[in-house]
């Protein structure tokens, strides 16, 4: 099987246009609302706290909206193509189903990346403005502060504001939503309705955050009885460990994220995505169109 980048790009590009026209970007407007409303609320708290909490809530909201987007946008791709018979004219061409699935996935990732960029810019702008006003406030109080006290306050504001780890956390949010998109493709490759796919993904999402618990229980043999152990092993095998990608705690706490952890997490994300895409392809090959 000779894979053609051009074909994959054509499918991905068309998928991206298709998604962009579905008005999924309304989600971004919702995000902006959450951000603005919460930050006006938060203006009542002190500067350091306000910056941290704004950053925290923005990250949480980006995380939520991007995950939602990944699931909802991906869930309807295959059913829509089948319903409109687009899938027939595409697969009747010399297009392996693997390329079709991969193209769809990359189209979704493109959409996620654009949305993430938009939300991040919005969030960084708000943070930056808040940071500037905090620094301005400090400058105004300059007479009342000793010089070393001043420098430490400025440093606190900087750590609470925009920094490198925030970017790392955003990249990992993208990785996590890409995993969700790959998983959604897997389910929609055999699902007969969108509702089923989305419901199933809601479960995957929840269980994915608990996977580490199931895994540890299974590996440490805390549980007796084979039915329970089998169940735990299945959970620990089928579901991705989504909790691992939540680095917002570290970021908000101002604890530096070690570079090797980020690399490891990106590696894990790649591992999940490849596995789920291959599985989705395998399921899709079996499917009667």
């Amino acid at each position: 099987m000779i894979t053609s980048l051009r074909r994959i790009r054509a499918i991905a590009g068309t998928t991206l246009i298709e998604l962009a026209r579905l008005r999924v970007f309304y989600v971004l407007v919702l995000f902006a609302l959450v951000l603005i409303v919460s930050s006006t609320f938060l203006a009542r708290i002190s500067f350091q706290q306000e910056l941290q909490v704004t950053k925290d809530i923005s990250l949480g909201a980006i995380n939520f909206f991007l995950s939602l987007l990944a699931i909802v946008a991906t869930a309807q791709l295959l059913p829509r193509d089948i319903e409109d018979r687009v899938v027939y004219s595409v697969l009747a061409k010399p297009v392996p189903r693997f390329e079709y699935i991969l193209g769809k996935f990359l189209g979704v990732v493109g959409l996620l990346a654009i949305s993430l960029a938009a939300m991040s810019v919005l969030c960084l702008v708000v943070l930056h403005l808040r940071e500037q006003s905090a620094l301005h406030e400090v400058n105004r109080q300059i007479e009342q502060l000793a010089p070393d006290q001043l420098s430490s306050t400025v440093r606190v504001i900087h750590t609470a504001g925009v920094n490198r780890d925030l970017i790392a956390a955003l990249v990992l949010v993208l990785a996590k939503s890409a995993i969700l998109a790959a998983t959604t493709l897997c389910i929609s490759a055999f699902a007969t309705s969108n509702i089923f796919t989305i419901t199933a993904m809601a479960m995957v999402y929840l269980i994915g955050h608990l996977e580490s618990i199931a895994r540890e229980y299974w590996l440490q043999e805390h549980v007796a009885g084979w039915p329970k152990r089998t169940f735990l092993a299945l959970v620990a095998f089928i579901f991705p460990d989504l909790q691992a990608f939540n680095l917002s705690d570290q970021v908000i706490g101002g604890v530096p994220i070690p570079a090797h952890l980020i690399e490891q997490l990106l590696g894990l994300a790649a591992f999940y995505i490849v596995s789920y895409i291959l599985l989705a392809t395998a399921i899709f090959y079996q499917r009667e169109l």
């Binding site: 590996l219 691992a244 939540n246 705690d249 604890v255 952890l261 997490l265 591992f271």
Partner: peptide, 18 residues
């Protein structure tokens, strides 16, 4: 599992939920 555990070990917050 090996992959996930090695990440867990580096993770600050993994203990909380457990």
């Amino acid at each position: 599992w090996k992959f996930e555990r090695s990440i867990d070990a580096n993770h600050l917050s993994s203990d909380v939920l457990h």
